[in-house]
Design a protein around this nucleic acid. Sequence first.
RNA 1: GCGCCCGUAGCUCAGUUGGAUAGAGCGACAGGCUUCGAACCUGUAGGCCGGGGGUUCGAUUCCCUCCGGGCGCACCA
Length: 671
Amino acid sequence: MILDVQHRVHDAIAQAVARRYGLAEPPAFGIEIPPNRALGDLAIPVAFQLARMLRKPPRAIAQEIAGLVGPLPGVRRIAAAPNGYLNLYLDRRAYLLARLKGEVAPPRAPAVRTIVEHTAINPNKAAHVGHLRNAVLGDTLARVLAFRGTPVEVQNYIDDLGVQVADIIVGFRELERLDLGGVQRTADTTRFDHHCWDLYARVTEWYDGQPDRLALRGATLHDLEHGIDPVASLGAFIVDRIVRAHLQTMARLNVFYDLLTYEGDIVRLQFWARAFEILRAQGAVFRQTAGKLAGCWVMRIEEGGEDREGAPGTAEPVAAGDDGGPREKVIVRSNGVVTYVGKDIANQFWKFGLLGRDFRYRPFLTQANGAPLWSTTSGPGDRSAPGFGRAERIYNVIDSRQMYLQALLGQALRTLGHPEQAANSIHFSYEMVALSHATARALGYESGPDDAKKPFVEVSGRKGLGVKIDDLLDLLAGKAASEVAKRNPAVTPEECARAGAQIAVGAIRYFMLKFSRGKLIVFDIEEALSFEGETGPYLQYAVVRANNIFHKLRERDGIGEAEVLARVEAAPDEELAEGDAASDHSLWAIVYEASQLDDIVDQVVRSLEFSALAKYAFGLAQAFNAFYHQYPILNEENAARRTWRAAGVAYVRAQLAAALELMGIAVPSRM
RNA sequence: GCGCCCGUAGCUCAGUUGGAUAGAGCGACAGGCUUCGAACCUGUAGGCCGGGGGUUCGAUUCCCUCCGGGCGCACCA
């Protein structure tokens, strides 16, 4: 990593500036990376700041400083650029050797106990592309945090008592006339979540046909919440099967969890009752006696909440009363039923260990990555369960439409005297995924006049309008597998299928990560099916090519990567010489670019913006492909150059593979 | 009405601690497979960075304002 070099350089320059110009406090300056290698490897713009102070041109100042700074370890030379930049040229040989020998460990973040909650799909139908963005962002966040040594616990919240589950129960009972046994048979003989997808859309239509049928939903929801059979058993069965289906879909995408948190357990273990005691005792909620909210327990919404630093997208919504009075959010309805917000407050309190209660836990299943997945339970718990919750920081991955509710969580924490936890309740917000008109049409959706005006069509589980993740993966994997087979006639169908599945995941995850999270994604099936240009498969292809070089090296010369690394130290290093290779496609250029990963990860965690990681990986793959094209590696006649190229490629490949791993993308053996 | 997000090349988007000639992919056009794999590479064309003010040595980036689009502001989740 270059952070250590950066620190030394920064300190040395700061000292030189302070000494030369008699400044107690030299101006703050950053260290940049010049746009190309000909301009050096590090750049310092400090002369610009000093120029006004000293009434001297930046160039003169830069020259003075350059002359003053003595030799720095790891830096070969320092030069003043005509425009006033100080450009530093690193000791390339030492830089690369240190990395090849694994002497440069990535910086560790402070061990802040962190929870990432994501996915949280209503367990009543198959997962679609909207859920896909959530899960990929959440999973990547967890990977990136863990990369820096942050202890991360990934939770998936299951709303097993919600309206949507009630609706699917109504569907099975009223439209399919099935009891528990019948539903079980259906589950065993269909792709159950997909079956429910269609049934859910039918239920919605059925309600629309005769609005008094909604009473059935209300009654079903009541029975569900109170555990009354047959609704409760039916609900429990459906939820369990759908959750397992979702987990399988997510496992295909390399998305895994530590804990499933069931809303039902929050209710049965009286978490809400406890949270309510706390809220009421502190006066955070009160019973409204007048107006249209009479009889409800409400929380007053802060007007223009105080400034909070934090990640973008976490700002307070400022709710101004439209009728002049302060606005209030209902926490407990007049009929005594707690709202979603109330349950979420209880859950957030528990996550921070502020509730004074805990769930009981049971093992749910063993995931495809070998890790156990636990579930909350209100039945008997398993004593060997690890400790969950008690986090210091929480990322809730939810789309931007729920910003208002997420802000209420922070407010509740602040009101109850937990400003630190409030500041560490981070709404990882992102814009939704919609469908292009072409894709909506391909799904058989006829857009109405309202849709035509908009540039996209909104996904709707209720209408059954959306691209299911499984279908998308099937389509991509099939296409990729046949491409692999076409290019590799000798490869077995099984291996083609395996590679196809990995390529499908690469395509889909990269597609979800390359946009910044504030950008609405208009999902177009044709676009998502592309394997060329800035796509996941392009990245995978670059690594596969690099791997092939080492396969060939072993085949042809009988030497492995370890031997290359052993030989490189003794080999003359003109391959890295400055004049020889100032090009942006030189070995040094790609090695240096590859070494930026740790900085990128740092930036990603600060900004919560994965597009930076995606672009880094793509740019590196691009640079590698260009290098690969321009410079022979195995066929280079000069042995020293050959060795250095192979060693450099080994490093680039490792860094690129690490970046892919952070994005949850595997490298196929062939493609 | 209030709040949040978006507006950069024909299309889709990067550019997030303010810095060197504003980048990429796709599409268009012109090239490159007898070589470590062409899911690749090289080149050309294409930009009042939505408009206007301001701060700064320096603004796509920060502030104000206006325009256009999206989303939210339930006794739904």
